[in-house]
Design a protein around this nucleic acid. Structure first.
Length: 414
RNA sequence: GCGUCGGUGGCAGAGUGGUCAAUUGCAUCAGACUGUAAAUCUGACGGACUUCGUCCUACGCAGGUUCAAAUCCUGCCCGGCGCA
C-alpha cells in the first residue's frame, strides 16, 4: 500500500516533563527523513547555487519546491513530462511542494513593503488590505500588490511577465499533483503580521474552507492519493486563540500531516507552537513553514515541530553571510580580507575545511559565483547539522544541556 | 611649432554663471534578509562640529571678471588628435 509513514521513536518529555518534542522518521516513496529535520528550500526546482550531490554532502535529506514558481516557470506540464519534480531536478530524496499560499502574502500584502512573516517592533506603514472582489490587474497594482484574494481563490499577477493567473485550492492541488512531490500542502492564505484581528478571523475561516477543498481535490485523484501526502496548514497569525482553534479545526480533517504557517512575533512563537502542537494529533508529522533561525529551531523542536524549511541559510549565503558557532559573520566586511582562517574551525563543512575567510571574501568581492556555492554549502551544513545534533541530544537525553551551550555561544556577541 | 579638443571627487563620467560639496554607475564602508519578486535590497560615501544645519577645503595650476565661477577671460602646466 502506501509507502508513507511517520513513526515517533522517542519523546523529549523523558528529559523535560511536558515538552512536546520528539524524534521520529517520516518515510516516503523517495526515502526516509529522520526528524527533526531541516528541509532545504529549492523554490524553482533548484537549491540556488548547489547541485543535488553538493546538497547530499551537506547532510540535507529533503527539498521543498514551490507550486507557484514552478507553475510560472517552466510550467507544471513540463515538470510532469519530465517525470515529476524529483526526476526533473535530479533529486532522489524526499520532496515537498509548498502550495503557493505564501505568495498570497509575499506578492500581496508584503509586496514591496519590507514586511516579513515575523512581526517587527516597528512595522512599516501599511494600509490594511481592502480585498476588492474583482479580478483586475490594474486594481491589484493600484493597491501595490500582485495578487488579490476572494472567497474562491487568489488571482496573481505574475512577477515574471505580468500575466494573470488564478489559484484556487483545487488548482493548487492539481498543480501539485502534476509536480509530483512526496508531500504537498493545502492552499492557504498566509496573512500579514499587520493584519488586524477582524481580518485574521475572516482569513482563518477562509483558509479552513480552502483546507477542506484541498482535501476534497486530493481525494478525487486516486493516483496522487497513493503517491503523495497532503498536509493542512494551521493559521491564525498572531492571535493565539485563533491558532488553537485552527489546530482543532484542521485536526478533524483527514490530513496526513500539518504545516504551521503564517506570521509570528518572536516572543509569541514558543507559546503559539505549544498551543498548536498540544492540539494537533501526536501521530502525525508537523512542519513549521519558513522558519529557521537557530534559536527558533530550538523553540520549534522543543515544542513539537518535526520539520522546518527556511530560505535563510541559502539566501544569506549568497550575499556573503555565514554561520559560525558564535553567530553570523559577513564575509564582505573589511576585516576578513586578510583573514586566512577557516569560517569556523569547529564546523567541518566542506567549505570550512578547505577554504579561508579571505578566499571567500575575495570571491564575494569579485562577484565570483563560487562564493555563493561555497557559502551555501557551509550554511546548509551548519543548520542541517545543528538539527541533527539536536535530534541526537534528544536521543541522548542531553537536549537541555546542548541547547543552553549552543545558544549561549551563538548569541554571546549580541 | 601651429591648430584643435580636453583636464571634475578612488575610477569612469554628467554638469558648462547662482537651485553644486557637485547627477549617475562602479569601487569602498556598513546594514537588512525567516513556506525565495532575492548572486537581492537599504544606507553612508571631501573635512570639522552636536542631526536640521553651520563652517572650511574642493571641479589641472595661478591670476582676473562678477553681488555670485566647476561653469566666463588671461597665462602656465599636462594629455588626445590634426597639420607642419
Amino acid at each position: 500500500m502506501s509507502k508513507f509513514s511517520f513513526k515517533v521513536e522517542k519523546k523529549l518529555d523523558t528529559e523535560i516533563p511536558g515538552a512536546l518534542g520528539r524524534v521520529g522518521v517520516i518515510s516516503t516513496p523517495h526515502g526516509d527523513i529522520e526528524t527533526p529535520a531541516f528541509i532545504v528550500v529549492g523554490t524553482k526546482a533548484t537549491v540556488k547555487a548547489l547541485t543535488p550531490e553538493q546538497l547530499i554532502e551537506t547532510g540535507v535529506q529533503s527539498v521543498l519546491a514551490n507550486t507557484y514558481h514552478l507553475f510560472l516557470e517552466p510550467g507544471c506540464d513540463t515538470v510532469k513530462e519530465a517525470g515529476g519534480l524529483n526526476t526533473f531536478m535530479h533529486w532522489e530524496g524526499p520532496s515537498w511542494t509548498d502550495s503557493g499560499g505564501y505568495q498570497v502574502f509575499s506578492l500581496g500584502e508584503a509586496f514591496g513593503k519590507g514586511l516579513s512573516k515575523f512581526a517587527k517592533d516597528k512595522e512599516p506603514e501599511v494600509e490594511v488590505d481592502t480585498r476588492p472582489n474583482i479580478y483586475n490587474k490594474e486594481l491589484a497594482q493600484s493597491h501595490g500588490r500582485l495578487c488579490i484574494i476572494d472567497e474562491e481563490g487568489v488571482t496573481f499577477t505574475s512577477h515574471v511577465d505580468g500575466s494573470m493567473h488564478r489559484f484556487t485550492p483545487e488548482r493548487s492541488i492539481e498543480i501539485q499533483h502534476a509536480l509530483g512531490a512526496d508531500i504537498i500542502f493545502a492552499f492557504d492564505e498566509c496573512t500579514s503580521p499587520t493584519a488586524d484581528r477582524a481580518y485574521q478571523r475572516e482569513a482563518l475561516d477562509r483558509t479552513h474552507r480552502w483546507a477542506k477543498r484541498s482535501i476534497m481535490a486530493h481525494k478525487q485523484n486516486y493516483e496522487a492519493l497513493k503517491k503523495q501526502w497532503l498536509f493542512g496548514i494551521v493559521q491564525g497569525g498572531l492571535e493565539k486563540d485563533f491558532r488553537e482553534e485552527s489546530a482543532h479545526v484542521l485536526s478533524k480533517m483527514d490530513f496526513d500531516g500539518y504545516g504551521i504557517g503564517g506570521c509570528f512575533n518572536k516572543e509569541g512563537l514558543e507559546e503559539s507552537l505549544k498551543i498548536v502542537n498540544t492540539v494537533l494529533p501526536e501521530e502525525k508529522p508537523r512542519h513549521l513553514l519558513g522558519i529557521g533561525e537557530p534559536a527558533d529551531i530550538f523553540i520549534g523542536i522543543e515544542n513539537g515541530i518535526d520539520t522546518f524549511d527556511c530560505v535563510t541559510p541559502t539566501r544569506i549565503a549568497r550575499t556573503g553571510m555565514v554561520y559560525t558557532r558564535t553567530g553570523t559573520i559577513n564575509l564582505r566586511n573589511a576585516q576578513y580580507r586578510h583573514d586566512f582562517s577557516p569560517i569556523d574551525a569547529g564546523v567541518p563543512s566542506y567549505t570550512s575545511k578547505n577554504y579561508t575567510r579571505a578566499y571567500l571574501a575575495h570571491l564575494f568581492r569579485s562577484n565570483e559565483i563560487l562564493g555563493a556555492t561555497l557559502a551555501s554549502i557551509h550554511n546548509l551544513y551548519f543548520i542541517v547539522n545543528l538539527v541533527k545534533n539536536i535530534r541526537q541530544s534528544i536521543l541522548d537525553d542531553t537536549f537541555l544541556q546542548f541547547k543552553d551551550e549552543f545558544l549561549r555561544t551563538y548569541y554571546q556577541r549580541k
